[in-house]
Each structure stands twice: as structure tokens, then as C-alpha cells.
Write a protein that binds this DNA or RNA. Structure first.
Lengths: 226, 226
DNA sequence: GTCTATAAGTTGATAGAC
DNA sequence: GTCTATCAACTTATAGAC
């Protein structure tokens, strides 16, 4: 049971997560190559199906080199999570989203841009997002870190936004968390269809049109009230 | 590269799928036990992380017995897909959903029941659904079969329903596929939060309340129009 | 001389054969 | 139901770079 060795606790992982910004520059060329190769293979074949020898070959290093830099194979996985999450928590959630949410755009334009923006980021980073969602299922500490950091941050931002719009009277008076989840669910569902169900073909309609209608539905519902 | 052996084509898999109804009774006690053990371990640990020896132990058979009934480990996985999908395509999608869609319930009650109904089925079969979604990513034939059969059937049903409601004037005139995807996205998103993000704790609100609001949002939107 | 990369092991478990 | 060849993660002895 090679998975049962000393596990990193969620706290330790969060520590890494928070310290990663400065650490990122301290990575050697080889470490970066190994991590890049690992992201590629883990997300292509899954964590268990990708062997360290493959990773070594892909990275262009000897297999032993991997274990000079990472205690275990799982350690490579863990080391990938923090930088990936950072790329979502810091420049993205905090900058673009805050800016959009602070703007005084009409609600429809704001939502459209928000969806478009998130979708692009998800598309660009899909293999890594998929990897994290995949492995979350099997590594408790990993899920803990994602939920605490990424989801915690996102949820607070979104709920604050929704609450303010409820108070300003723009949004009906529902529980903010439920409205937030509805907004996010639309995106999750769209992503699910686009990337999980039809990863190859692409969908019939283009994203912009689809998002336009999605926002219309979320804002006005599907019921005909003439 | 044990994944690269002779793959079952989508057609062969669909063949199995269609023939499974009669085959299901022809399974021996041992085969059933092996398959049950495999579903359990594959969905708990993932396909690659679950070993055939564990499966044998869990099923209470000798390891060799597995390979008397299934050519390869992957063959076990493939054999699981058809019965699982059937349990979704036949009794559920076709019976409950058709009945609900054919009823003349008001749209909100109809949607609430539909969501409630689907959610219960997903909850009851979550480990199997998760397994299929997981392994779809890595086994092309499997995804082909799921998309063709499950998704194809579901989509046709849902689109027909939405189209009829658009023609009757109950639903606004959007592309039926987009409306369908919006309806399903809500459920997908809800399931994602409930089972993937917070599989342990359970959510703050109970499903009935959440679904009630979700249906309200989908039907009437979140914009305040007083 | 230390520090790092490497490739040839070692061990154990795995899928699959007999 | 036992057996085995294979391949996994991981180790270590060695050699090269600074």
C-alpha cells in the first residue's frame, strides 16, 4: 500500500500553498521539467496509470533524479496542486472577478463577462483542473486544500456579490448561497458537457451565444409570462 | 502499456449493451460477486489503484477465478458499464421520466419531481456513476458507449419535452438543446457540489428546499422585476 | 570536496498463465 | 488455486560538475 506512507496533512498542504509564491522561483530547471511532465502524464492517463519511468522519460531526466527532488510519486502530485490552485486563486478570482463585481455594469453584461472569462480560464487550464478534480476523489488532503482555499475564497467572493445585489434590489430575495450555487452550477454543467461529454467535437453553438442564452435564462427564467 | 491491448470498439460495446438484458440472468453467482466487488473497489480507489487480488479477496474467490471469467482486468470494467447504464436508460429514463413528461402537472411541480427523482437515483448509484465518469476520461470506447446510449436517449427525451413546452407556449422560445442543457446543468452542478466537493458533510439545506428554489430560479430567473 | 545527476539495481506486488 | 514474468516505486553506488 504505497499510498499509506506518511501523508501530508491539510494544514501542511495549506502551508505549502501559501508559501508557494516565493518557492516558485526557487524551483530548478529539472524540477520544473519533472513537474511539467507529471502534469501532462497524470492528466492524460491518471495518477496511478502514469509511471515514474514515463515521467522521467518525458522530462528527459533519469528516473533516479525524480526521487532526488520528490520523496515519493505522490509528492509530485501534491507539489503540483499548490501552483495550479494559485493560478486560480490569485490572479484570476481575485483580480478579474473582483474588478467585474465591483463594476457598475448592468447585471446581464456583468454575468456574461464573468462566464466568458471563467470559461476561457477553465478551457486554457482544463487538463490541470481535471487532474485536480480527478485526484480529489482519492486523496483527502488534496480535497481539503482545494475546498478550503479555492472554494472557500470563491464562495465568499460570490456570496458577497450576490448579497449586495439582493440588498440593492437587483436580485430576488433568495438565500445567497443557493443563488451562488445556481450561478456556478450553470457554469459547471456547461463545462461538464463541453469538456467531459464532448471533449473532441466541440459543441454546435459557440460559447458566446450559449452564454448569452444561459445568462438570459438565469436572469429571467424559462417560463413564458406574456 | 497494458492499456493498449485489443480494445473493444464502441460498436462492440453497444452490442453488449443491447444484449445485456438477457445476459444479465445468465451470469453465474461468482461472476456477479466479482463484478460487485470490482464496482466497489474501482469506484473507491480508481481502476488502476484497485488490484485484481483485492477484487478477488473482496469477492471471496481465488484470484485465478477472475481470469477464468474475464480475459483482462479492463474486461471487468467494460462488463460493468452496460448493466450500470441499463439501470439508467431503461427503468429510469424511460419509465419515470416519460411518465412525468407526459403528465399535465404544472411546470414547477413537474420539474421539482423530475429533479427530486433524478437526484435520488444519482444518490443511490453515485459510486457507479462516478466510476463511469472517471473512467470515461481514459477509455474512449467507454465514453463512446455512454454518449451514444445514455446521453443520446436522455437528450432526445428532454429535447422533445422542451420543444413541446415551447410550442404550447409554456416555455420561452429558446433553442431546445440550450434549454435542455440549462435544466440538466442545474442538476449536474448541484450533484457536483453535493457529491464531489462536499461528499461527507452534507449541505446546509435539504434537497427539497434547494430543489424548490432551483426550479423557481430556472422558471422565473433571479432578476427582480417588481 | 561537496553537491547533484544518473543508471543499474532491489523489492514487492501485479496481471495474467497454467 | 498456485505460480511466474513483468513492471511498479523506490535505492544506492558511481561518476561528473562546479
Amino acid at each position: 500500500m504505497h499510498d499509506m506512507q506518511k501523508e501530508l496533512s491539510t494544514d501542511e498542504l495549506m502551508g505549502r500553498f501559501l508559501n508557494q509564491l516565493k518557492d516558485e522561483d526557487q524551483l530548478t530547471e529539472k524540477q520544473k521539467r519533472i513537474m511539467e511532465a507529471a502534469v501532462k502524464l497524470f492528466s492524460e492517463k491518471g495518477f496511478h496509470a502514469a509511471s515514474t519511468s514515463e515521467i522521467a522519460k518525458e522530462a528527459g531526466v533519469a528516473e533516479g533524479t525524480i526521487f532526488r527532488h520528490f520523496k515519493t510519486k505522490k509528492d509530485i502530485l501534491i507539489s503540483l496542486v499548490a501552483p495550479i490552485m494559485l493560478r486560480f486563486a490569485s490572479p484570476l478570482l481575485l483580480k478579474d472577478v473582483r474588478k467585474l463585481m465591483g463594476s457598475d455594469l448592468p447585471l446581464d453584461d456583468l454575468l456574461k463577462q464573468l462566464y466568458q472569462n471563467r470559461l476561457q480560464i477553465i478551457e486554457k487550464n482544463w487538463s490541470q483542473i481535471r487532474l485536480i478534480i480527478q485526484e480529489m476523489q482519492f486523496h483527502e488532503e488534496l480535497r481539503g486544500a482545494v475546498v478550503e482555499n479555492l472554494f472557500g475564497v470563491g464562495r465568499k467572493l460570490a456570496e458577497a456579490f450576490v448579497s449586495s445585489k439582493i440588498q440593492s434590489g437587483e436580485i430576488r430575495n433568495f438565500p445567497p448561497l443557493t443563488v451562488t450555487r445556481a450561478l456556478v452550477s450553470m457554469m459547471v454543467g456547461y463545462v461538464f458537457f463541453k469538456f467531459v461529454i464532448f471533449p473532441d467535437e466541440g459543441m454546435n453553438l459557440d460559447d458566446e451565444q450559449e452564454i448569452e442564452i444561459m445568462v438570459d435564462i438565469i436572469l429571467n427564467g424559462i417560463r413564458n409570462k406574456e
